[in-house]
Simulated scan of single mutants.
Amino acid sequence: MLKYWILAARPKTLTAALIPVLTATALAYSEGHGRWQPALLCCLFAAIMQIAANFINDLFDYRKGTDREDRLGPERACAQGWITPRAMTRGIVITLILACAVGCGLLPFGGWPLVGIGAACVLFAFLYTTLLSYMGCGDILVWVFFGIVPVCGTYYVQAQMLTPSVWWLAAASGLVIDTLLVLNNYRDRKQDALSGKRTLIVALGEQFGSMFYLLQGVAGCVCVAMLAFYDHTLCAILPLLYLVPHSLTWREMVRINQGRTLNRILGKTSRNMLIFAVLTVLALL
């Protein structure tokens, strides 16, 4: 049973949750504000919230019947019948309680405004799967909750302030991480259209989706390069190396075009995101 919960947690997606926290911490340390205690708590909160969001996505996709044959994977625990909807509901409650408990540990570092931010994270974890992803808002949520919120929040609890460099890093993080969602929506565009899920790619077309994937990676590098204007010169050089695997992955994605074969591009996109994060951390430190 434990292995099914691990599959449902989708460990591979934790990279997306941790990248903004790690890069923001590197920025804080490079500017003399690094503190390991709030940084560790931010990592734990981000990871647990990502697991909770994956559980929520699993449960509500099952209830809506949006899983189709070419989208089913071992991580879809409810659809596979390995975890009952009632058990998954309990899992959601437990992980959210754990996330809130960890979040409370951040209050001494960031104050009561963090309660509102945490509540928004919980609320939109539900709204994304149940409503907003059907309205073409998924990419906006990624920019906010994998860019602005975690990067600015992680930096603030360590430095007690926000600087212009933080906002550029937040923009870069959100853009690069959203390539993973864009790839998912590119792969599922036909099924999404049938089920009434109007992602940007369903609304604007396949060609838009492929260019959207490519250009977000480019825009992410442009944003992180702006940190060179704030005494982080290497940020205009090292992260550019990310564009090599990113462009090669994009070419392979366009060549494959559709079907479950695109699942292998998910792993390569996650790898590319990690490369971007490592290069950014090295540039900052």
Rank of each mutant, 00 (worst) to 15 (best):
A203P: 00
A203Y: 01
A203F: 04
L204N: 03
L204A: 06
L204G: 01
G205D: 07
G205M: 10
E206I: 05
Q207G: 12
Q207F: 06
F208W: 14
F208T: 06
G209V: 06
G209K: 00
S210L: 07
S210F: 11
S210Q: 08
M211C: 08
M211K: 03
F212V: 00
F212E: 11
F212M: 07
F212G: 02
F212Y: 14
L214Y: 07
L214K: 07
L214D: 14
L214R: 11
L214F: 14
L214E: 12
L214S: 08
L215V: 06
L215P: 06
L215C: 11
L215E: 09
Q216M: 09
Q216H: 12
Q216K: 05
Q216E: 12
G217I: 01
G217M: 00
V218A: 08
V218S: 03
A219W: 07
A219M: 13
A219T: 01
G220P: 00
G220K: 02
C221Q: 03
C221G: 05
V222H: 04
V222E: 06
C223W: 01
V224T: 02
V224W: 03
V224N: 03
A225Y: 04
A225N: 05
A225K: 00
A225W: 06
M226Y: 03
M226N: 09
L227N: 13
L227C: 11
L227F: 12
L227I: 13
A228S: 15
Y230F: 15
Y230A: 03
Y230V: 02
D231F: 07
D231L: 04
L234N: 02
L234T: 02
L234W: 08
L234K: 08
L234Q: 06
C235N: 10
C235H: 02
A236C: 04
A236E: 04
I237F: 13
L238Q: 05
P239N: 06
P239Y: 02
P239A: 05
P239K: 03
L240M: 13
L240Y: 12
L240D: 08
L240G: 04
L240V: 09
L241C: 09
L241Q: 05
L241V: 06
L241F: 14
Y242R: 02
L243M: 12
L243C: 09
V244T: 12
P245L: 00
P245M: 00
H246P: 08
H246G: 05
S247Y: 15
L248D: 13
L248N: 12
L248F: 09
T249E: 08
T249I: 10
W250V: 08
W250P: 13
W250M: 10
E252R: 14
M253A: 14
M253N: 07
M253E: 12
R255P: 10
I256R: 10
I256L: 15
I256P: 09
N257A: 10
N257K: 14
Q258E: 09
G259M: 02
G259A: 03
G259T: 01
G259P: 05
R260A: 15
R260M: 11
R260L: 07
T261M: 13
T261K: 15
T261W: 06
T261Y: 07
L262V: 08
L262P: 03
L262K: 05
L262D: 08
N263D: 15
N263K: 08
N263A: 08
R264H: 10
R264N: 11
R264G: 11
R264C: 04
R264L: 07
I265Y: 07
I265R: 13
L266A: 11
L266N: 05
L266E: 13
L266H: 09
G267D: 13
G267K: 01
G267S: 10
